[in-house]
């Protein structure tokens, strides 16, 4: 579904060059929930932005398979921001129109989505009055408006309270049941184990470990967190 092949990206800053990604390769299969793990500033967001087309890779190739690939991706960016002048439902309707969905279909879809993410009471709230967690929920809703086959989520758990995380987990599992492919990056490892079919650990611009979390941990009795720290320190 999503194939990343030897991706490289260097940022040129005043302090000097920073090689964020070095020959990164990975593959997400159809129907998988894929966890993209790594410390802050390791290049998770850079990878996601390259997939989204916000950044350009110096080298490497990204292939997304499926019909109308661009139309069938749902995107959720880190720390989502919305237009101040729009209300919650107007934001969703704007995004729906960008996908070219007809107005009537959008109007049916919006209440469903708001119910799914728990914002049904905030439909008429201006987006600038939303809390961080509510923004996260709205962003998740915008990612779902086009009924995507592939969901790419950047730090979706960031800023959610425990209740929100539980909701999110439920939603992910429900989407998985519908056969959707989900690729998400996170540095919060606690919930990853339960929902992911596969994880990849990004460190120093490379994938240092990849596989089913249960299999990765199977040999030891460590938690994913301990495993992660161990691997990261090994590779420094």
């Amino acid at each position: 579904m999503l194939k990343i092949k030897s991706l490289s990206k260097t940022f040129y800053q005043t302090k000097g060059e920073k090689n964020v990604l070095k020959n990164l390769s990975l593959e997400v299969k159809k129907g998988q929930v894929f966890g993209f793990l790594g410390l802050n500033g390791e290049g998770k967001t850079t990878t996601v932005k390259i997939i989204a087309g916000l950044l350009f890779a110096d080298k490497g190739k990204i292939t997304i398979t499926g019909d109308n690939s661009r139309e069938k991706i749902g995107f959720m960016s880190e720390n989502p921001h919305f237009y101040d002048h729009l209300k919650v439902n107007e934001t969703l309707s704007y995004v729906g129109e960008l996908f070219g969905i007809e107005k009537e279909k959008i109007n049916i879809k919006i209440p469903e989505l708001l119910k799914l993410v728990g914002l049904e009471k905030s439909a008429e709230t201006p987006t600038k009055k939303l809390s961080k967690g509510m923004r996260q929920r709205l962003s998740f809703a915008t990612a779902l408006i086009n009924d995507p086959e592939l969901l790419i989520l950047d730090e979706p758990l960031d800023g959610l309270d425990p209740l929100g995380r539980l909701d999110f987990k439920k939603a992910i599992l429900a989407l998985k049941k519908q056969g959707k492919t989900i690729f998400f990056s996170t540095h919060i490892l606690a919930d990853v184990e339960e929902i992911c079919d596969e994880v990849a650990i990004l460190h120093n611009g490379k994938i240092i470990e990849q596989g089913n979390p249960k299999k990765l941990l199977g040999r030891s009795k460590k938690t994913l967190e301990e495993f992660f720290v161990e691997k990261v320190t090994q590779n420094d």
């Binding site: 989204a52 916000l54 960016s77 989502p80 921001h81 237009y83 995004v95 996908f99 070219g100």
Partner: peptide
Amino acid sequence: ERKTIYLTLTKPV
């Protein structure tokens, strides 16, 4: 600056 461009450019635009 307000990162709203992410909302639009990550769509088929």
